[in-house]
């Protein structure tokens, strides 16, 4: 698990900043394979959820126009060093992954 996600969460002045990077092709379904000329099937992350100590702090719905290897950064109030941050994603083919980290 969590081979696809890199995450950093840092608390400063009462605000936690979460930055994450997910390894994923984010295929639109409109691109052709150069060798075969066939369309590469759509394959993209549709949902990303992040929780702080089990409570949801962001919930994203994504389309295929989010870049390959997607990046997500956001901020929430509260959170302190050592708190748990969990981030998970799910794509249109049913694949998913998640990661848990501690706030620095």
């Amino acid at each position: 698990m969590a081979k696809t996600i890199k995450i950093r969460a840092k608390a400063k002045d009462g605000v936690t900043t979460v930055k994450s990077l997910i390894t994923h092709p984010m295929e639109t379904g409109l691109r052709k394979n150069k060798k075969t000329g066939k369309l590469i099937p759509a394959h993209f992350i549709q949902e990303v959820v992040c929780k702080h100590n089990g409570k949801e702090v962001i919930n994203c719905e994504w389309g295929a126009s989010i870049s390959k290897n997607p990046y997500l950064a956001f901020k929430f109030k509260g959170g302190k060093k050592g708190d748990t941050i969990e981030l998970s994603w799910k794509d249109n083919t049913g694949q998913s992954d998640s990661i848990t980290t501690k706030i620095r």
Partner: peptide
């Protein structure tokens, strides 16, 4: 000039 999102992690 910033270090981009990918590189920031490593």
């Amino acid at each position: 000039v910033s270090v981009n999102e990918d590189a920031l992690f490593d």
